[in-house]
Write a protein that binds this DNA or RNA. Structure first.
Lengths: 338, 338
DNA sequence: AAACTAAGCTTAATCGTTTAAACTGCCAAA
DNA sequence: TTTGGCAGTTTAAACGATTAAGCTTAGTTT
């Protein structure tokens, strides 16, 4: 049971005050005019005693924890996993550590997470906000805790976020399907009020309108989050309308995977019987018998920019809010029609 | 810019000492014999000023951070993502927060992560150790920092870990393939010295031996980690030996996915031309045209047990090391032969 | 009346680090 | 001889919380 070495231990060993040790180990020997010999000796002893600064004490003193809180819907979803990875790497580069939590799209869990992370004196947040969490963000603002939203956002210019142009994504995807002669394009999305969901919905609708498409009522399949059996029923219904639907556009990666799985099971031929356009990249697509067309999000860039924006805001509370809207990329393969 | 409320602020507002406030807010009013009225008043004011305890200060005082460090190879790999999720949930239940990092199978990154997390006064670690990190674990032991290994482990009885019986997993999988009449079963694995890799290898070999199978030299495909083109070449080679190989057993989830992808591309028919047995569950499997047989690991149980064991060791440094070896489950589908 | 008890509170040290301010010699300039 | 300056160091407060020990005041025992 060997105790950790503290500044005090070194100070006693070298027979100087802790102040001197602190100055030396923080490379402030110059401005503190520490004698070269003393400095060397302190460094030597610190190394010998394998001193590691106590970040908790540092944080208490400085008020900065050098930690970033990351809140996503579900870290086991590769989409968020990949984002987490890039955020972790970029943070490390800048000297920050990441503490994460999954909100499970629940406002309550999100609230709890934010509270525990605030208690831990997190310096800032990167959040993929769940539904109905606007008040939580308002609270963060009041408490003067910087944060940057990713993936999802709210209509508010006094907010920083990094997202893709969701409208453009589904507009162009729909357009592609129309170009391939698809007449009855279904849209599969979640029932929620998040801005990015609405935008994706709008992109689909507008594309249809602009190309003079008719009634779409039975072509929209809205499902509940985290409810596979509900999805199965609703999507099954959509497929059963049979010849009517000739293409499907999925609006998230989880929906894409679930949809592909069900299509696999029912034996519908892609793209002959049904054209498909998925959302987000996934290694799973490569295992589907037909190469999948999808909307590609620049995840690395999202993660990196989010960290950069956050650190910018953390180091300078006066700095302006930034809204970064990146362009999605359409990857066209055989599934969207030949 | 409203400052955070501290005990002192409340104490001043109520006109008592910080000690009293601390007692009350920690529900020690009884043992500190605090007057009921005073206590109520303190609680009222604390609520009004929306007091949140400073976990950093608490940690410094108590020496406990109530934080767990999680080190995995890559959080964007759904296998680890899912583990992270269960670990996060179980930790939260017990009042702990998770700080994570990806080692990328690099001993250097692993070292860095461990150091920063120690500096942050983490109470304990859950680690999926990378190759050549034994010294790091020895160091943790010396420093008396509890940890539990998951997924991988080292031969050492003075170590706590939660793993599956890797030998059994590949032994049984190989056996299944043999039962289906497969004669030339290939094995795809990583080149590394980790115990779990060796065990999986041994399971395969022993199963072949026990069933009187001959020479397997060209049937083993060892690839480098994080080197897709190398995999492509080596695995392509294996497939090209053509009629010779009639089954493939993959030894990790990443290898399974990469393999399936390549099989998809080359147009080999599963299971007619080639039987397959994969490792670990994955939603991707459901998109493959042929239902996949695989080794299922009880990830929830691994995560939960790891957290429980760690907390056990953290609260009682005297407690014994525990080695938990769980049984894998074989999920048999059409890909392993009919 | 002295001694004690209990209730209700405060004091002060402590965790490990930082840092402005003060102190101590010593040497040089006036 | 006084003053000043500088190198090299220490002191001490502070960050926010915890908690053992001490201090009042009043009431109770003997």
């Amino acid at each position: 049971m060997q105790k950790k070495t503290s500044l005090k231990d070194i100070a006693e060993a070298v027979n100087v005050s802790t102040a001197l040790v602190s100055y030396v180990l923080n490379n402030k020997e110059k401005q503190a005019r520490v004698n070269l010999q003393t400095a060397e000796e302190i460094k030597r002893v610190a190394k010998k005693m394998s001193y590691r600064p106590n970040q908790v004490a540092k944080s208490l003193k400085s008020g900065k924890s050098l930690a970033i809180g990351l809140i996503v819907a579900d870290i086991s979803n590769p989409f968020f996993g990949y984002l987490a990875r890039t955020i972790e790497e970029e943070s490390k580069k800048k000297g920050y550590t990441v503490i994460f939590g999954s909100s499970d799209e629940s406002m309550k869990k999100s609230q709890e997470l934010i509270e525990t992370l605030i208690n831990r004196q997190i310096d800032g947040f990167i959040i993929a906000p769940a539904e109905e969490t606007e008040k939580q963000l308002t609270y963060l603002k009041k408490a003067n805790i910087p944060f940057v939203l990713i993936d999802r956002y709210f209509k508010d210019s006094a907010l920083s976020y990094v997202v893709i142009n969701n409208f453009k994504a589904t507009y162009q995807a729909t357009q592609k399907l129309l170009e391939k002669g698809k007449k009855r394009i279904a849209f599969v999305c979640y029932k929620n009020k998040l801005q990015h969901t609405k935008e994706r919905y709008r992109g689909y609708i507008e594309a249809l309108k602009d190309h003079g498409s008719a009634d779409i009522n039975e072509l929209i399949c809205e499902v509940e989050f985290n409810n596979p059996s509900y999805f199965k029923k609703e999507f099954g219904q959509l497929l059963k309308t049979g010849s009517k639907v000739d293409a499907v556009l999925f609006s998230t990666n989880a929906l894409s995977i679930m949809g592909l799985k069900q299509i696999m099971e029912t034996g519908i031929r892609v793209p002959e019987d049904l054209a498909l356009f998925c959302f987000d990249q996934s290694e799973s697509y490569d295992l589907f018998y037909c190469p999948i067309s999808y909307v590609h999000q620049p995840l690395e860039e999202i993660g990196q920019k989010a960290v950069q924006m956050l650190i910018d805001r953390m180091s300078n509370h006066q700095s302006a809010y930034q809204q970064l809207v990146l362009d999605p990329e359409l990857i066209i393969k055989r599934s969207s029609g030949t």
